[in-house]
Design a protein around this nucleic acid. Sequence first.
RNA 1: GGAGAAAUGGCAGAGUGGUCGAAUGCGGCAGUCUUGAAAACUGUUGAGGGUCACACCUCCGGGGGUUCGAAUCCCUCUUUCUCCGCCA
Length: 422
Amino acid sequence: MLQVPFIRDNKEEVVERLKVRNVDASVIDAVLSLDEERRALQTKLDNTLAESNKLSKEIGGYFKSGDIEKANELKAKTGELKETSKTLTEELNSKADALTNLLYTIPNIPHNSVPAGNSEDDNEEVFKEGEVPVLDGAALPHWELAKKYDIIDFDLGAKVTGAGFPVYKGKGARLQRALIAYFLDKNTEAGYVEHQVPHLVNEASGFGTGQLPDKEGQMYHVQADDLYLIPTAEVPLTNMFRGEIVSESDLPIKITGYTPCFRREAGSYGAHVRGLNRLHQFDKVEIVRVEHPENSYKALDEMVEHVKEILRELKLPYRVLRLCGGDIGFTSSLTYDFEVYSTAQERWLEISSVSNFEAYQTNRLKLRFKDENGKSVLAHTLNGSALALPRVLAGILENYQTPDGIKIPEVLVPYTGFDMIK
RNA sequence: GGAGAAAUGGCAGAGUGGUCGAAUGCGGCAGUCUUGAAAACUGUUGAGGGUCACACCUCCGGGGGUUCGAAUCCCUCUUUCUCCGCCA
């Protein structure tokens, strides 16, 4: 969430920049007045407590010196103070809660470069690379290829669990495993330390990275234990640092992890969700960085270059988009989406999203570092997919299909052990 | 799942109702000494709110309670350790 002191000091700028995301200015006024009321109550309460602390000490002194009568006299005076502080505490808590809840409804301030816009049509293409293959004959979409070569079985998954939970078989499963290993190796080479993390997280972690309360309905909730299945490795990877004060020399922290991701995707059904395009369970390799605020945009660029390199090696045609104010994620300041072009589907498939959250997550997480003056400063967090599996797989199947079968990208052959799916 | 023990500052570890935000040691930082370093010595060293700066307030795993007053007593939750049971 946004930092109140920052809003207080930069009100005009905050209002102006949130307009890009169509946020109404009145919310900011509401935050500031709630904060003012909160601080007034805090001061009142502090004064009351100070007085009763003073009395308690005096009473202690009288008991020690044996002046019981005087002590009891003072005791009688503390009752009222106690009542007052109790009332004030309740008022303060409800005010503070109201403020926090309001802050939860305000998205992150977009970076200067974020274009205005309402939908994905307003995103800005900033880079494009790779050749769209010319396929001879009829190009098949991946769900038909999957059936033809018996490598992914959607019906079997639907039988075992439900729609959106595919079963990968034989060379399909092996290709999936190859991609995970290849991505993790690339990330490790680039200095990201591999982690294996829990696939279920508690409520505090959900709030820490901003999935809660905003996207409550998008996560699978295990009621008996009040845990959530992770919608992305970002949640456990980033929450490892919740409440930490790291030393400046620890920065940047660069980590990576593979996990399955679970998303309810409530309400998104239709033509564009066929096959691997949108699933309830899918695999993803994630990269996360904790950065010094001065370095976070340089870090974002590095992450973008890193993902580019992987796609270059896979020889997939792709483009990079700078998301507009209407399409950017709630907690992000600046997001680049990567899309692979699928010849068979004749459309772009999103395969990675790389974001800088600045201090929006760390303010919730209370993830800070000590600067040279010994002051605690909120760090910046970033994350990105490197990469999401299903659509990369779809892109490979569709772009690498030949009349003789599906070729395997050269860099993956050492991982798959075969160079063709027939 | 059953029985018991524990949770204190970066770490170790004292503190069992009153001037305790907390002894002491280690670590960190600054200084003295030294050509430099080490050693030794001296000082300093938790977080948040609040203030121009002080004052002041809150925090001893989380939440609640008793009391004029709680790190210290009570309830509850979580986590860790030991023993038993079960088990990939």
